[in-house]
Simulated assay, not measured.
Amino acid sequence: MRFSVLASGSTGNAVYVENDEHAFLVDAGLTGKKMEQLFAKIDRDMKKLSGILVTHEHSDHIKGLGVVARKYNVPIYANEKTWQAMEGHIGNIPLEQKFVFNMETVQSFGSLNIESFAVSHDAVDPMFYVFHENGRKLVLITDTGYVSDRMKGIIRGADSFVFESNHDIGMLQMGRYPWSVKRRILSDVGHVSNEDAAVAMSEVVFEKPTQIYLSHLSKDNNMKDLARMSVTQTLQSCGIIAGEYVNIHDTDAEEPTLLVTV
């Protein structure tokens, strides 16, 4: 199982996951042209996609969804409420390309098992995914206001995490956003901060080689160096030393991460 975080941030999100038999895109939150450029950078062909998995209907996750699905005849998987919420935003999708992926279920594609789980975000029915293959586990979890005990139970012990580290609380509080937006981000249906993300990570990481990709960083209220430093320091305060068995990686809003094996 291999993956690349194609783009991650306030302006658009997409993650590519493949094994030897199947290839999936999780969200398509950038234009179709930009998605094609990102695929070219990791030397992959969009024509070979087995499906696109949708997490929720916000535009930074579905901006290019309709264009990509129609152009490359790719099946789309989303839960029923998300399908309803996307109507009118992604254009007409042929019925044969529309599939329902229910919340808290597992769908199998050969040796690749994909598990969906609920998160806490201000979308109609947001969910993220865990990829399982041959005892290896990849977790994608962003766009959540907090990480519940139930979420922790589902994601615990992964070999690789794409984990939200959205904002620095001080930057957000002192920033230019109106108070209503700040309140939404800080709420239980908003986004997790660097420190809160790290505390959650400390409770789900096993003592084995683990890769953590800090994702969905706010363009206005965070910085890569700050996120990495905050997460590293908070993990250390919880008894986990970054660089021993846990490695922290950046993601970018414009450039994909290297395609790596889980």
Rank of each mutant, 00 (worst) to 15 (best):
T251A: 03
I169L: 09
E133H: 06
H249T: 06
Q233A: 08
G51V: 09
T232N: 06
I240M: 00
T55W: 02
L186K: 06
G88Q: 03
T251C: 08
A28C: 14
K71C: 10
I141V: 14
D188K: 13
R44T: 12
D168L: 05
S165E: 00
T251D: 02
M35L: 15
S202D: 06
Y245W: 13
V181D: 02
Q37F: 12
T234L: 00
F128T: 10
I248F: 10
E21G: 04
E164C: 02
N134T: 11
E164G: 15
L25P: 04
S165F: 00
G157R: 07
S116L: 03
F128D: 06
E254C: 02
G64V: 12
L6K: 06
G135F: 12
G243E: 01
V106N: 14
M86H: 05
V130F: 09
Q211E: 14
G64A: 06
M201C: 09
A253C: 03
F206C: 13
I114D: 04
I76L: 13
E164F: 04
I114Y: 07
M174L: 07
G110A: 10
R70I: 12
V260L: 09
I169V: 14
T142K: 03
S4G: 12
T210S: 10
E21A: 13
R228F: 02
K81C: 04
Q37R: 12
G157M: 11
D27A: 14
D27N: 15
G110H: 01
H22T: 13
R228V: 12
D143R: 06
K47P: 00
G145F: 10
T234W: 01
E115P: 04
H121N: 11
G91C: 07
N13I: 14
S4Y: 01
M151E: 11
L95T: 13
V147F: 04
D220M: 03
S215L: 08
P209E: 12
L226P: 00
Y245M: 01
S148Q: 05
I155L: 10
S237A: 11
I141L: 13
V262L: 09
G110Q: 05
I62Y: 00
H58R: 11
V100K: 08
R156M: 12
G175M: 01
S8E: 03
M127K: 06
L172Q: 02
V262F: 03
R184W: 12
T232R: 13
G12A: 07
M103A: 15
I93P: 12
D125W: 01
P126K: 09
S202Q: 04
D250P: 05
K71G: 10
L140H: 10
N194P: 11
E57F: 11
I90V: 15
E195S: 13
M46Q: 13
T82N: 10
V130R: 03
M223V: 06
M1K: 04
D250F: 13
G157L: 14
K152Y: 07
Q107M: 15
L258F: 08
M229Q: 07
M151R: 00
V17A: 03
S59Y: 11
M46I: 14
H61Q: 08
N113G: 05
D252C: 11
G88T: 08
V17S: 04
Q173K: 12
P209W: 07
V139H: 02
T144Y: 05
T144K: 05
V246R: 01
A123R: 01
Q211K: 14
V17P: 01
V54G: 06
M1I: 07
E195P: 07
I185W: 08
S120V: 05
E244T: 15
S180T: 11
S148C: 07
Y213H: 04
A78N: 07
D250R: 03
